[in-house]
């Protein structure tokens, strides 16, 4: 394999890692609070606000049911506002985040709903405020599941990032399409796929390990 190709591979690997890391971080930053809000504003919960909860639910669902490739194109104007450009690796982070945050929010919502409401009541009975209940009860108790949810989100993002080539985001997926598929370079195709598989494996193993460590049940 030529020096050029190796450089290309390294560059693509970096792009993928960068896109996935940045969008995972942002998706976690937005997705976890969003998931918490979806739970606590639901019926009978500590900050019940049904109209707000329903509207938020609809927005989250709308985002989630839009295929990523369409979402990416549809929000180009928004991407331009946020990232200052609509093409390139940085620009790709915007749709990746917007796709992943609601996904993670739903996962977090499910994780928090699995926390026995009895412990919430116990905390309430001890005089905990809604903020304290979220920070000291809901999040810690749901943490093992949330970690698995974040893991799942990162893995989805690795997959989504392959499509980022469409808007010039680069990355391994883009490399595989351009060289492996369009230029019939089977070796590059195989290498990129192997790297992607390795990335997914590493993320999954780390996530499982961390969740296992946190789980005290």
């Amino acid at each position: 394999m030529s020096q050029d190709l190796i450089e290309l591979l390294v560059k693509s690997l970096w792009e993928t890692t960068y896109m996935v890391a940045a969008s995972s971080l942002l998706a976690t930053l937005f997705g976890i609070p969003l998931g918490v809000i979806l739970v606590v504003t639901d019926k009978g919960h500590i900050l019940e606000n049904l109209p707000f909860n329903r509207v938020l639910g609809i927005i989250v669902n709308a985002t989630r049911s839009t295929p990523f490739i369409i979402l990416m194109v549809a929000i180009i104007p928004l991407t331009r506002i946020i990232a200052g450009t609509s093409i390139g690796t940085n620009a790709a982070i915007v749709p990746l985040t917007i796709a992943a945050a609601p996904f993670l929010a739903r996962v977090v919502e499910t994780a928090i709903k699995e926390v026995d409401f009895g412990v919430v009541e116990a905390a309430k009975a001890m005089g905990a405020s809604p903020r304290e209940i979220i920070a000291k009860v809901l999040l810690p108790e749901a943490m093992p599941s949330i970690v698995l949810g974040v893991t799942l989100t990162i893995i989805s993002l690795i997959g989504y990032s392959a499509m980022a080539g469409t808007i010039g985001g680069g990355g391994l997926g883009d490399l595989a399409i351009r060289y492996g598929y369009q230029r019939f370079r089977a070796d590059i195709m195989i290498i990129t796929v192997l790297i992607l598989i390795a990335q997914v494996q590493i993320v999954q193993s780390l996530g499982d390990y961390l969740a296992g460590r946190l789980n005290k049940k």
Partner: peptide, 27 residues
């Protein structure tokens, strides 16, 4: 006003000592 429950409602991610410390942290 202390309260105890049929199903105990302890925090599963906290140790015994940390569970007992919980209301004190809140206070």
């Amino acid at each position: 006003i202390g309260m105890i429950f049929q199903h105990f409602n302890l925090l599963s991610t906290r140790t015994v000592a940390q569970n007992i410390a919980f209301p004190l942290e809140l206070a």
